[in-house]
Write a protein that binds this DNA or RNA. Structure first.
Length: 909
RNA sequence: GGGCGUUUAGCUCAGCGGGAGAGCGCCUGCCUUACAAGCAGGAGGUCGGCGGUUCAAAUCCGCCAACGCCCACCA
C-alpha cells in the first residue's frame, strides 16, 4: 500500500491534514463510497488514458458506414519536445475530434512526426561532437544509421507528451515522414513531376547557409531589419581621367563584379553606357550597361553588378550575358576568385577591402543604412546568395488550381482573412528550391552517368546507364517540406488506392498556426489537387500563436517558454486544456498567464465537488426507472433544464464556428453560476425535504444536468469527465463514445427563466441589504416584501422557501403595506420592494448607501429622459426599443421614488 | 516599401450598432455538513485620440498615435 501526503494550500492545511490512501483513489469507486475532497489529476490521468487505448476507443474504421470526419496532425518534429504552441494546436484538434466522435462520426485523428531534415541532423551532429566526431569522419552511411538510432531512442518523446495532453489520436495509424510508405509517396511525386517537366535542375543563385552548408528555400530565410553601412566607392573609366561612384552595402562582393549598370532613362549617365570601367583593387575591366532594374534615385544611380552573389545582379547577368565569378567557398570564405583576398572570411574580407580602398582614397563617404538581411531560420547565420546547381519545382502551374480551389470555396480558411495571405503568396509564387546538401532526408532519386552524362530519374534504383556506363546517385536530399506537403495523401496510403484513402480523403479540417501557411498548407493544397484531383481538406482552421507578455513568439532561445508538461504536473492536463480553449479567441494571438491555469484548476475542482455532492445524494436512485413525464418538476428544475438546453444550442454554434473560447465561457458560466450557485443550493430543499417524490425528482434533475454537462465538458476536459462518468450510475461504458447532447427545444421555458431571474434578483437584493447592515450570516432575519409590479404575488407566495433559504430568513411576509417603514432597510428588485428590519438606531450607513444609489439613478434617469424626449428616436427607432427604454425609465423612477421616501423617513436630507 | 492585428477595470482579456462584462488581484463578512482551490456582498472604467455615418457608436467608416506581427530581390 502506498501513502501520500497531499499538499494543500496554506489555509486548508491549517485546518486538516489529509492523508489519502492512493490505492483507494485509483480503485473504481461506486456511488456513495469515499471520494476525495479535491480533484487530484495525477491519480486519474494515466489510468484513463491507458483505459482508452486498451479499449481502442480512438481507433477509426474505414468500413463502419458512418460519415467520416478526418484530421491529420501537423506532424511535430521528431526532435521536438512539446511547447505551448503544440499544446494549443493539439488541444484544439482534440476538442474537435472528440466532439465529432461523440456526435457519431467515424472520427479519425491521424498522428505522426516529421523527420525535420536540418533540425534532426543538427541534433545528431551535436551528439557526435560530444564524442569528438564529425559526420564527415564517420561517413554518410554510418551517420544516417546514427540518426535512425537516435530517432528510435528519442523520437517517441513528443508522442508521449501528446498522450499526456490527452490527445485522442488513432495511434494504430501513427506515421513518420520517412517511413516506407511516406518515402514511396515522395519518390512517386518526384518522378512524376520530373516526367511532367515540373521538376528541373539548374544553376541558379540560391539562399545558402554557410553554417548548415546547404541551400534553403526562399521562405526559410528570415529577414531582419539591421543597421548597415552604405559605402560610396570610386570606379574609374578606362583610358580617361573620368570616374564615378557606386554605392554598395557589401563592398567585398566587388571582387566578383563583372559590370556596372545605370538606368537607360537616366540622362545623367547616357554617355557612360558602353564605356568600360575599371574595378578598383583588382583592375578588372567592366562594361557599363543599361538596365531597367537600376533605380536612379538610390545612391548615385550607378550600381555595381555581381552576378554570382546577388539575385538581382544574377538576373541582370543573364540579360546581358555577363560572366559569373564566384568568390566564395561554401563556408563563405573568399576563394581564389577573390585574388589577394583569398582565404579571408566574408566579414574579414569586407574590412580588408574597405581598408584598402580607403588607403587609395577611393571611398568618398559612408552612410548608415537600414536594410533587411536574410538569416537561416534554423541557425540564424546570415544567408549568402550563392550560385549552385540545385533542383527546383516549377510552381506556377501547380499554384493555379490551388488558388482556384480557395476562390470557389472548395477549401475555406477560418478566420477568412488568412485567405488573403494565402492568395498573396500564391499569386507571387516563385520556383521552389527543393534540394538540400544534407544527409538526413529523402535522397533525390536521380543518377548521373559517368560515361555519357545522362540524368536518370527513376522509381526503382537503376543498375547502369542504358549506355552501359556506371551511375552515380545525386548526393542531395529533399527539403523536409517536400514530404510533409504530401502528408494528407501519403499517410492514408497514396499512391496506392487504399480503403483509408478512399474513405478519409479529403480530410475535413486542418488545424494549424499561420506561420506555416506557406511552408505547408499551400504545398499540401498544390500536391493534393495535382495528384488526388481534390483538395486535401475542406477547411483550414488557423489558430492563434502563443506569445509572451511582450508579444514575442515563445521560443527556447528567448527563454520565455512555459513548459506544458510542468503545467500538467502542477495543475493537471484538463486545467491546461480548458485554459487553452478559454483563451483561444479566433484570429488573435494570445498570451497565457499562469493565474488563468490556476483558475481552470479551480473549475476542475468545482466540477469535482458538484459531482461529489450529486453522487452523495444519489442513494437509491435508478435513472432507468424514472419516467420523465411523471416527475413533479419545480421552478428550479424547469429553469435549469431550460438553461441547459440553451447551453447545448450555444455550444453547437460556438464549436461549429471553432470558437472554443465562447464555448468554454458558456460552459463555465452555466456550470458554476447557474448549476452550482443556484440549482444545487435550491435542490437541497427537496433532497433534504420529507417527500420521497420530491427527492427522486431532485435526484433525477441533478443527475441529468450533471451527466449532460459532463458530456459537454468532455472534449475540453477528458480526464476528469471520464473519472466522474465512471462513478455515475448509468449503463454507458466510456464517455468518449457517449452521444453528444442534443438541444431539447421542448424543455426551453422562457417563463421559468424569467421567474427564476426575478427570484434571484430579490434574493441578491436581500443579501446585499443584510451585508450592508452587517447582519451576520449566522443570524436569521425576518423580511417583508411588497409586489410593486402587481403580478409577482403568486410567484412570491409559491417560492417563498427559495427566498427564505437563500437569503437566510427566519420568515417572509408578502404584504400590501408596511406599517413602520422607518425601522427597515429597503431595496427594490425586479418590481418587488424588500424590507429588512434594522436592528440598530444608527442609520448613517444606510443613509449613505441611499444617497449614493440616488446619485447614480439620477444620472440614469436623465439619460433615459433625454432619449425619450427626442422625436427622432421615437419615430425612427424600432418600437420595441422605445418600449424598453420607457420601461427602464419607469423602473428607475420607481426606485428613486422609494429611496427618497426612505430617506425622508430616516431623517436624511 | 506593402499588408495585417492590437489599444476596454490595477493585471490578463471577452464583447463588436440599442442599459459597460469575466477571471485574477483588491476591500468587507463568513470554517453555512459538495467545494476556504470555497460562499455571500462590494469598490474600481468619459471602452487610445480626433472627425464622420446613425434616432442611437466601445461596437460601422476615415484620419492620427502607440505597440506587435507578417510579407518584400533598391544595391
Amino acid at each position: 500500500m502506498q501513502w501520500k501526503q497531499v499538499v494543500l494550500p496554506r489555509h486548508a492545511a491549517r485546518r486538516l491534514e489529509v492523508i489519502i490512501d492512493l490505492s483507494d483513489m485509483l480503485e473504481e469507486t461506486p456511488a456513495g463510497r469515499y471520494i476525495p475532497k479535491a480533484y487530484e489529476p495525477a491519480y486519474v490521468e494515466e489510468k484513463w488514458y491507458r483505459f482508452w487505448l486498451d479499449n481502442k476507443l480512438f481507433h477509426a474504421h474505414a468500413d463502419s458506414g458512418k460519415e467520416p470526419f478526418t484530421i491529420v496532425i501537423p506532424p511535430p518534429n521528431v526532435t521536438g519536445s512539446l511547447h505551448l504552441g503544440h499544446a494549443l494546436n493539439n488541444s484544439l484538434q482534440d476538442f474537435i475530434i472528440r466532439r465529432k466522435r461523440m456526435q457519431g462520426y467515424e472520427a479519425l485523428w491521424l498522428p505522426g512526426t516529421d523527420h525535420a531534415g536540418i533540425a534532426t541532423q543538427n541534433v545528431v551532429e551535436r551528439k557526435l561532437a560530444e564524442e569528438g566526431l564529425t559526420r564527415q569522419e564517420i561517413g554518410r552511411e554510418a551517420f544516417v544509421e546514427r540518426v535512425w538510432e537516435w530517432k528510435k531512442k528519442y523520437g517517441g518523446n513528443i508522442i508521449r507528451q501528446l498522450k499526456r495532453m490527452g490527445c485522442s489520436c488513432d495511434w494504430d495509424r501513427e506515421r513518420f515522414t520517412m517511413d516506407a510508405g511516406c518515402s514511396r509517396a515522395v519518390r512517386e511525386v518526384f518522378v512524376r513531376l520530373y516526367e511532367e517537366g515540373l521538376i528541373y535542375q539548374g544553376y541558379y543563385i540560391v539562399n545558402w547557409c554557410p553554417r548548415c552548408h546547404t541551400a534553403i528555400s526562399d521562405i526559410e530565410v528570415e529577414h531582419e531589419e539591421l543597421e548597415g553601412k552604405l559605402w560610396y566607392v570610386r570606379y574609374d573609366i578606362k583610358d580617361s581621367e573620368d570616374y564615378f561612384y557606386v554605392a554598395t552595402t557589401r563592398p567585398e562582393t566587388m571582387l566578383g563584379d563583372t559590370a556596372v549598370a545605370v538606368n537607360p532613362r537616366d540622362h545623367r549617365y547616357h554617355q557612360l553606357v558602353g564605356k568600360t570601367a575599371v574595378l578598383p583593387l583588382l583592375g578588372r575591366e567592366l562594361p557599363v550597361i543599361a538596365d531597367d532594374f537600376v533605380d536612379p534615385e538610390f545612391g548615385t544611380g550607378i550600381v555595381k553588378v555581381t552576378p554570382a552573389h546577388d539575385p538581382n545582379d544574377f538576373e541582370m547577368g543573364k540579360r546581358h550575358d555577363l560572366e559569373e565569378i564566384n568568390i566564395f567557398t561554401p563556408e563563405a570564405v573568399v576563394n581564389e576568385g577573390g585574388g589577394p583576398y583569398a582565404g579571408l572570411e566574408r566579414y574579414e574580407a569586407r574590412n580588408a577591402v574597405v581598408r584598402d580602398l580607403e588607403k587609395i582614397h577611393y571611398i568618398s563617404k559612408v552612410e548608415t543604412h537600414h536594410h533587411a538581411v536574410g538569416h537561416c531560420y534554423r541557425c540564424h547565420t546570415v544567408i549568402e546568395p550563392y550560385l549552385s546547381k540545385q533542383w527546383f519545382v516549377s510552381m506556377k502551374a501547380l499554384a493555379e488550381p490551388a488558388i482556384e480551389a480557395v476562390e470557389v470555396e472548395r477549401t475555406g480558411f477560418v478566420p477568412s482573412r488568412w485567405e488573403k495571405t494565402y492568395f498573396e503568396w500564391m499569386y507571387n509564387i516563385r520556383d521552389w528550391c527543393i534540394s538540400r546538401q544534407l544527409w538526413w532526408g529523402h535522397r533525390i532519386p536521380a543518377w548521373y552517368c559517368r560515361e555519357c552524362g545522362e540524368v536518370i530519374v527513376s522509381r526503382e534504383d537503376p543498375e547502369r546507364c542504358p549506355c552501359g556506363g556506371e551511375l552515380k546517385r545525386d548526393p542531395d536530399v529533399l527539403d523536409t517540406w517536400f514530404s510533409s506537403g504530401l502528408w494528407p495523401m501519403s499517410t492514408l496510403g497514396w499512391p496506392d488506392e487504399t480503403e483509408d484513402l478512399r474513405f478519409f480523403y479529403p480530410t475535413t479540417v486542418l488545424v494549424t498556426a499561420f506561420d506555416i501557411i506557406f511552408f505547408w498548407v499551400a504545398r499540401m493544397m498544390m500536391s493534393g489537387l495535382h495528384f488526388m484531383g481534390d483538395v486535401p481538406f475542406y477547411q483550414v482552421f488557423v489558430t492563434a500563436l502563443i506569445r509572451d507578455e511582450s508579444g514575442k513568439k515563445m521560443s527556447k532561445s528567448s527563454g520565455n517558454v512555459i513548459d506544458p508538461l510542468e503545467v500538467i504536473d502542477h495543475y493537471g492536463a484538463d486545467a491546461l486544456r480548458f485554459t487553452l480553449g478559454h483563451i483561444a479567441v479566433p484570429g488573435r494571438d494570445v498570451f497565457l498567464p499562469e493565474e488563468r491555469i490556476a483558475g481552470s484548476r479551480h473549475f476542475c475542482n468545482k466540477i469535482w465537488n458538484a459531482s461529489r455532492f450529486t453522487l452523495m445524494n444519489l442513494e437509491g436512485f435508478d435513472a432507468g426507472a424514472v419516467r420523465e413525464e411523471e416527475l413533479d418538476l419545480t421552478l428550479a428544475d424547469t429553469w435549469i433544464l431550460s438553461a441547459l438546453s440553451g447551453l447545448i444550442q450555444r455550444m453547437d454554434q460556438h464549436c461549429e464556428a471553432y470558437n472554443f473560447s465562447e464555448a468554454c465561457r458558456a460552459l463555465y458560466e452555466f456550470f458554476w453560476s447557474d448549476f452550482c450557485d443556484w440549482y444545487v443550493e435550491l435542490s437541497k430543499l427537496r433532497l433534504y425535504g420529507s417527500h420521497e417524490a420530491d427527492r427522486r425528482t431532485a435526484q433525477y434533475v441533478l443527475w441529468t444536468v450533471l451527466e449532460r454537462a459532463l458530456r459537454l465538458l468532455h472534449p475540453f476536459m477528458p480526464f476528469i469527465t471520464e473519472e466522474i462518468w465512471q462513478r455515475l450510475p448509468h449503463q454507458g461504458e466510456s464517455i468518449t463514445r457517449a452521444p453528444w447532447p442534443r438541444p431539447r427545444p421542448e424543455l426551453v421555458d422562457e417563463e421559468a427563466e424569467k421567474d427564476m431571474n426575478v427570484l434571484r434578483e430579490i434574493i441578491t437584493c436581500m443579501r446585499r441589504l443584510r451585508a450592508e447592515m452587517g447582519i451576520k450570516p449566522s443570524k436569521l432575519t425576518s423580511a417583508l416584501v411588497i409586489d410593486m409590479a402587481g403580478d409577482r404575488n403568486a410567484l412570491l407566495e409559491r417560492y417563498m422557501d427559495y427566498i427564505i433559504s437563500q437569503a437566510r430568513l427566519s420568515s417572509l411576509d408578502v404584504v400590501r403595506k408596511v406599517e413602520d417603514p422607518s425601522s427597515y432597510a429597503r431595496g427594490l428588485a425586479a418590481g418587488v420592494e424588500v424590507f429588512i428590519p434594522l436592528d440598530s438606531e444608527d442609520f448613517s450607513e444606510e443613509l449613505e448607501r441611499i444617497e449614493r444609489e440616488l446619485a447614480k439613478l439620477e444620472d440614469e434617469s436623465r439619460r433615459f429622459k433625454a432619449k425619450l424626449s427626442n422625436d427622432q428616436f421615437l419615430s425612427k427607432a424600432p418600437q420595441e426599443i422605445v418600449q424598453k427604454e420607457r420601461r427602464k425609465l419607469a423602473d428607475v423612477m420607481l426606485k428613486m421614488d422609494r429611496l427618497k421616501e426612505q430617506l425622508e423617513l430616516l431623517g436624511g436630507s
